[in-house]
Each structure stands twice: as C-alpha cells, then as structure tokens.
C-alpha cells in the first residue's frame, strides 16, 4: 500500500523498505571475484537480474546487469558497509568503481495479473512474457520519468525510481490505474 495509490484485485503497489544500494562498474574480468565476494554470481547477460533470499531479510542479495559494465547491487540496509568492504577488498587489483547510492532511489514492487498492462500505460516496451521474460531487468521510461524494471515473475515487477521522481511516478501510475479498474 503506497500513499496516493489505490490497490485493486489486479495489481498492488508496495514500497520497499530502506535498502543499501551500490553501483558497481567493472570490466568482465572482475566479475568472478566480485560475485564471490558478494555471495551471488553477477549475471553476465546484459539486462538480466539475479537474486537470492527475501528482500530486506538478512543475506538477501540482488544483482542487476543494466549496462555493459554496470551492475546494481541491492542488499539489506544493515549489510551495506560489510558488502562494500568485502567487494572493495576482493576487487583491489581490478580497476573498478563501487559507489553507494542507497538513498538515490526508491524501490517498489508492482504485482498482480494486471501489473504489466498497467505499466504499459506509460512504458513503451513490449511487456509480454515472450518479449520481457521473468529475469529480465532494464532501465526504461514511465511517461516522463526513467525507471528500472525487473520482472521477477510473470506478475511481479520490482521497480527503482530516482527519489525525487518517485512521487510523480506514483501519481502517474495512480492516474493510469483509473483506466484499469
């Protein structure tokens, strides 16, 4: 339940708890070491996400491959400093960039059988399961703002939006939902 958005039987919007987020930029040669230190192999295929554990619960790990040398790593808030330290020490010999962006974004889960259709009110991508299968993660647009869309299951999307644009996103999604009642 998110303020300003009315859930229906066909879709629900949930705001993520505070999380630690990092942007890792590194060449392919650093992937193995990074995955080992992170505790989750970083997906090699571009526009794919991987995870284990339950969001916000201890040990949960998310890795999203969003640019050729760009991964987003999302972990429980309390584990951020340790994860960063482990990565930095494992990647010491590889040129890389690890930047804390925990507060840059707001995370949401949009779920339900109507979730994909609702996103298509403002997102121009083909969100059919054939074109955008579970496991796919990519940046795109929702109306006027950029967002990250990661499909975890057919009716389960995790979304990340820049902090200051999140209120617009929620309002725009709520407006779009009026066409999906």
């Amino acid at each position: 339940m998110v303020d300003g958005f009315a859930d229906t039987s066909r879709f629900r919007l949930v705001e993520a708890p505070p999380l630690a987020r990092f942007v890792l930029r590194a060449p392919d040669t650093a992937l193995k070491a990074a995955g080992k230190a992170y505790g989750l192999a970083l997906p090699e295929a571009l526009n794919h996400g991987a995870s284990h554990g339950e969001r916000g619960k201890p040990g949960a790990r998310v890795a999203l491959h969003l640019g050729p040398d760009e991964w987003w790593l999302i972990v429980p808030e309390a584990e951020g400093p340790d994860v960063a330290a482990a990565l930095e020490s494992a990647l010491g010999s590889h040129p890389h960039s690890l930047v804390n962006v925990s507060h840059r974004q707001v995370g949401y889960v949009l779920e339900g059988e109507g979730a994909a259709g609702l996103l298509n009110a403002g997102c121009p991508l083909d969100l059919s399961e054939a074109a955008f299968p579970p496991g796919m993660a990519t940046r795109s647009l929702f109306h006027r703002v950029g967002l990250m869309i990661w499909r975890m299951a057919p009716g389960l999307f995790r979304l990340e939006i820049d902090r200051s644009l999140a209120p617009y996103f929620v309002a725009a999604l709520a407006e779009a939902a009026k066409d999906h009642s």
């Binding site: 942007v23 890389h96 960039s97 930047v99 804390n100 507060h103």
Partner: peptide
C-alpha cells in the same frame, strides 16, 4: 581511461 562516473545527486 579507467574511470567511471556515477550520479549521486539524489543520494546526498
């Protein structure tokens, strides 16, 4: 050049 930029406008 081995350098990357990351926007932290909204983090800070």
């Amino acid at each position: 050049l081995k350098v990357w930029q990351t926007s932290v406008t909204e983090h800070w």
